[in-house]
Each structure stands twice: as structure tokens, then as C-alpha cells.
Design a protein around this nucleic acid. Structure first.
Lengths: 110, 110
DNA sequence: CGCTCTCATATCGAATGTCAATATGTGCTT
DNA sequence: AAGCACATATTGACATTCGATATGAGAGCG
């Protein structure tokens, strides 16, 4: 079995979910698929991480949800960004850049 | 009060400690200072995070410790990398690059 | 000496985030 | 009808980080 996927870095899941929902609404598993896609297969989000995160983020007012039908005619919950969520995504991207720069700098130190 | 420091991204502390010890041995607070320095002040490692991490990593065989005296004549525990720790640092750097690339790619998507 | 400050290490409790495992239901296919 | 894949959900275990707090010892001062 090929082991290419990595465990999530704690704290990045929210950002990736927000980013995945940027272009438009998706249902839960659709979000997981898009995250896997845009991270080039590096991150595989497990259901046990995904759904609690979605609920948490809906609670926080970053996402709004509505029931609908999936591409395969299954009942599915569609999530989309709220205005607050869009703002949050901006914050998290900025934060990420700061952190990534700092760590990269540290690793390049003599 | 100026709030410039960020909470640590979970999972990066070990790597930063290993990196801080690359050039040579340091005592606990010295490690915290060097991390703050090489991350350009972005990360401030709190004692409540640092010491448990050091113990954990010593347990794992990545660090070895010995008691000595600090620059100010205080009793201090000096840590240095073991061979295993050096190897671990390599792993973690590689892992970090993979993750950072994947997330950066995701954030640059559409 | 007695007082306080800083350095240095240490631990505990709370909160959080992630995962593995498990569960439920439903549509599609055979 | 049986089996499979999709879709959401929850639970329990585990690790990590932080805030708060504690202890002890050297340094500096009146």
C-alpha cells in the first residue's frame, strides 16, 4: 500500500475548508475531495476530522449550510462561505504566510 | 501591549527545538531564545510548552541532557542532539517542505 | 542581613484538534 | 435481496499547547 498522504498539521484544516469553499458551495465529502485535489493529494481529510470541523465552523458563523441532493441523488448538506467566513479566510491566509515565512527562515538558518 | 507573537502551529515545536540545537548545546531557556531569534520573533515558546517537549524528546532519544552552569552561574540543564535527533531533524524538515508546498499550492489555487 | 528581582526548571489543569472506529441510512446495481 | 458506495454523524482515545503556578538559587541593593 502506497503511503503518500500526511496527517494534517493542526490548525490548517479550517483554512483549507474555507479555501475549498471559495469558488462555491460543496457538500461535506466534496470538500474533502477538493482539499485533496488542491493540495495535490498531500492531505486526505478523514470524516472524523471533517464533520466536527464543519459543525464547529458553522457554529462560528463562517459557513452556512442547507440540505440538498448530491450528484448521485443522495441527501447531502451543502456548505458555503458566509461574509464572516470570507473574512476569516483572509485572516488565516495572512497568518499562514507569516508562520510559513518564519519557519522557512528558521530552517534556512546556518 | 504589542501582540506580535503567534501561537505555535501544533507539530512544529519539535522541529524548531531540533533545529535550534543544530549548532551546539543549549539550556532550556536558551533554546526558547534561539527559536525566537531564528523565527525573527514570530514564535515565542512558553515554558509550559518547552519543558514538556524537551522531556518528551529526551525520552524519544533525540536529545541528551546534562546539568551544568548557565552564563549567569545558575544551574541549568544543557541539551544536545543525539545521532537519532539529527536524523529526526532531517525527517521533519523534509515533511515540513512537503506540507508547506502543498498548502501554498492550495492557497494559490483559483 | 533581608529584600526583591531575574533566571531556570518544573508540573498541573483546561482546552483544543485530530484520528480510528463505529453507526445509520439510502440509492444503485446485480 | 444482497452488496456496495455514498454521505453524514458521533464517540473515545490521544497528543499538543497554553496559562497558571511553584520552587529554588544567584545577583544587587539598602
Amino acid at each position: 500500500m502506497i503511503e503518500s498522504q500526511t496527517n494534517l498539521l493542526q490548525g490548517t484544516l479550517d483554512m483549507l475548508i474555507l479555501k475549498a469553499l471559495g469558488p462555491g458551495e460543496l457538500h461535506g465529502l466534496g470538500i474533502a475531495r477538493r482539499i485533496e485535489q488542491i493540495t495535490r493529494g498531500t492531505f486526505q481529510v478523514k470524516p472524523g476530522s471533517l464533520f466536527p470541523a464543519l459543525h464547529r465552523m458553522e457554529e462560528a458563523g463562517w459557513l452556512s449550510a442547507s440540505w440538498g441532493e448530491s450528484e448521485n441523488n443522495r441527501r447531502a448538506k451543502y456548505y458555503k462561505l458566509t461574509k464572516k467566513g470570507t473574512k476569516q479566510l483572509g485572516h488565516e491566509q495572512q497568518q499562514w504566510e507569516r508562520i510559513a515565512l518564519a519557519i522557512t527562515a528558521a530552517l534556512q538558518t546556518g
